[in-house]
Design a protein around this nucleic acid. Structure first.
Length: 645
RNA sequence: GCCAUUGUAGCUCAGUCGGCAGAGCACACCCUUGGUAAGGGUGAGGUCACGGGUUCGAAUCCCGUCAAUGGCUCCA
């Protein structure tokens, strides 16, 4: 199997302090492989990629693109242009928007430049020479100054000490401030494996700072062969067909109405059926694991969130408070404070702990409009929330139990392509509250739990919640955007702010520690990811319709209803297709909507008490006694099997 | 929120130069009663996202609003 590793330099949210390499691997047949399934391979391959010919080709192609762009836009200011996962980009400050014609012209010109066979040469210069050369190129001047001052390097990464030297790389008429490495000659780039027209130009802030200039980012990709490029473009097309927004429409799972409000999904019957199935499953699992159900209202007084400390931190991303008479209420952006008040409603003894309060709590957050995406980023969503109130001695075991629960859920659904991220505080940030010693304690507990459970994880500073460190389960959607699903967070802060306590064995009144956890994260996002994960072909237990009965002729409709009634009696979700179209057309239709079982019912079946079973995979199981089929389907449902037979 | 692009039937889309609003699928009705990936016919369905402007005349050109898409920023 040939692997082409492709690192994705991800910037951390806060200040772009560091870069992390995440990879996805594509097998030769284009099948995507797991991100974390292959961590070892990936990690060794991250460096491999940076040292690879493909990396040099992409980096060099970025320079060629900049050269062509400067020919098209002589007054353009250039920023930075690094290789990234799957390609490269270059940021420009341009006098006008880039059109399709511009892109096409530049792409054609790039091919010419490549064919002209220019050498790449490196030259060391002094800071003054560099500044003189880039006079008028304010972004480059800023980079040079930062390099000399030891702040960030030419790719925008933080550096530990001032750069020891400044290097220029030149090909043909284009010279860039750059560390390299590059190919020796543009002839090493395959002009037929280069594209910048496959992706539209994008806005990007200089230095990733929304208060600074907005530049135009042109994305490009380069491969070794034209076939690889074609395959890559094909994969992008395929990904679009898996998109949960496309499948959600096709299968009638959900809709979003501008009149209701953007980012506020409406669940249609089939989608609600699935969502409800997931909810029932987790609810029962939690009951089995000692969680207690609670129910809390959708709003709370503003003072509640002031006490919890949430309000000042996040007031920009909340729906505005509702004023009624003299009081202000907030549509709840999180469930924690409500659960805290339930804890506080009674005197708690150490004998009562751990106390695990669970609720599928719907919350509302006013996310920036540009951030909303289908089900994966919305403004109203339901968290499969629970808060565990534990003693310090219980913390590690409870945390591990939560992680096991999440692992069980992910495994049950075959969601193996995730990574675990330990989010710790960024020591330089002011955002975090609480005692550093407790932070350290909590962080160690999380890492210890990951180690004990053999979980692969990365530690990332600056990814903690403001009140405590956390462990997140991250997955990527079909467009390779990364999303947080399951999360477990350790919190010393809320117990402190709400002055929670319990009576200990020695009659003292210590504070409990809170664990916030949500295995799905949110039902909306989890469903979105599941839709893409299964590409609409859900396991039988989750499928909104598990079987469709297809009567061959009208005279078989009545027996079909009788068969359906028997399936329903075993709890199976079944439809009878009484439509006028022909059987073949019906088969096609239900296969397209990924119904697991199609049961054909004709004279022979009615006579013999059988159904002719066809799977959505096109497998024909032939005529099965009805009781046998029901037994098979029901047992697959009960065991939450991922198989169809 | 910012940059760019887009918005035509329930869905996917065509609509040339500013001159009668189109197709396929889905839907309704009729014929076909069929054994494993689309049988045939007829019909209904539109404030061309919304508001304003230019023009004899606007789906088409201009401005604004709303929404979606890609990216950036953000994400309890």
């Amino acid at each position: 199997m040939a692997l082409y590793p492709s690192p994705c330099p991800l910037r951390t949210r806060r200040g772009g302090k560091k870069r992390l390499f995440i990879l996805s691997l594509c097998a030769e047949d284009g099948q995507e492989m797991g991100v974390n399934q292959h961590t070892e391979r990936i990690m060794s391959n991250a460096d491999d990629y940076k040292n690879s010919q493909l990396y040099r080709v992409r980096h060099s192609t970025a320079h060629v693109m900049a050269q062509a762009m400067l020919e098209r836009f002589p007054e353009a200011l250039i920023a930075i242009g690094p290789p990234i996962e799957d390609g490269f980009y270059y940021d420009f400050d341009l006098p006008r928007p880039v059109t399709d014609e511009d892109l096409q012209w530049v792409e054609n010109r790039m091919r010419e430049i490549i064919r002209e066979g220019h050498d790449f040469s490196e030259k060391e210069v002094t800071p003054d020479e560099a500044r003189a050369f880039f006079a008028g190129q304010k972004y480059k001047i800023e980079l040079i100054n930062d390099l000399v001052a030891g702040r960030v390097d030419d790719m925008g990464n933080e550096i530990a000490q001032p750069a020891s030297k400044i290097t220029f790389w030149t090909q043909a008429t284009f010279t860039d401030l750059c560390r390299g490495p590059h190919v020796k000659n543009t002839r090493e780039i395959n002009p037929d494996a280069v594209s910048i027209t496959f992706k539209p130009p994008a806005g990007a802030y200089w230095r990733g700072d929304e208060n600074r200039e907005q530049l135009t980012r042109i994305y490009g990709t380069a491969w070794e062969t034209a076939e690889q490029l074609e395959e890559y473009l094909h994969l992008l097309e395929e990904a679009k067909r898996r998109d949960h927004r496309v499948i959600g429409e096709k299968l009638g799972l959900f809709t979003i109405s501008p009149l209701v409000g953007k980012g506020l999904p409406l669940w249609k019957p089939y989608g609600a059926m699935m969502r409800d199935t997931l909810e029932r499953w987790l609810r029962q699992t939690q009951l089995d694991n000692g969680y207690l159900p609670v129910v809390t209202p959708h709003i709370g007084k503003l003072d509640l969130y002031k006490t919890s400390g949430h309000y000042p931190y996040y007031k920009d991303s909340q729906y505005a408070p509702i004023q009624v008479d003299e009081e202000e209420f907030l549509l709840k952006p999180m469930n924690c404070p409500h659960h805290v008040m339930i804890y506080k409603s009674e005197m708690r003894s150490y004998r009562d702990l751990p106390l695990r309060l669970a609720e599928f709590g719907t919350v509302y957050r006013y996310e920036q409009s540009g951030e909303l995406t289908g089900l994966t980023r919305v403004r109203g969503f339901t968290v499969d929330d629970a808060h565990l109130f534990v003693t310090p001695g219980q913390l590690l075991d409870e945390f591990k139990d939560v992680v096991r629960l999440i692992q069980m859920i992910f495994n049950s659904l075959g969601l193996t392509d995730f990574r675990a991220r330990v989010g710790t505080r960024d020591p330089e940030s002011e955002k975090y509250v609480g005692d550093p010693a407790q932070w350290e304690q909590a962080t160690q507990a999380i890492i210890q739990a990951c180690e004990d459970l053999g979980l692969r994880y990365t530690v990332e500073a600056g990814e903690a919640a403001f009140y405590g460190p956390k462990l997140d389960f991250m997955v990527r959607d079909v467009l390779k955007r990364e999303w947080q699903l399951g999360t477990v967070q350790v919190d010393y802060n809320l117990p402190e702010r709400f002055e929670l306590e319990y009576v200990a064995e020695d009659n003292s009144r210590p504070r409990p520690i809170m664990i916030h956890r949500a295995p799905f994260g949110s039902l909306e996002r989890f469903m979105g990811i599941l839709i893409e994960h299964f590409a609409g072909a859900f396991p039988v237990w989750l499928a909104p319709v598990q079987a469709v009965i297809i009567p061959i002729a009208d005279r078989h409709v009545e027996p079909a209803e009788a068969v359906a009634a028997q399936l329903r009696a075993r709890g199976l979700r079944v439809e009878v297709d009484k439509g006028k179209s022909r059987m073949q057309a019906k088969i096609r239709e239900h296969r397209d909507r990924q119904v697991p079982y199609m049961l054909i019912l004709g004279d022979r079946d009615v006579e013999n008490g059988t159904v002719s079973v066809r799977l959505r995979t096109d497998e024909d199981l032939g005529a099965l006694p009805l009781a046998d089929f029901i037994e098979m389907a029901a047992s697959l449902v009960e065991s939450h099997s991922l198989e169809l037979r």
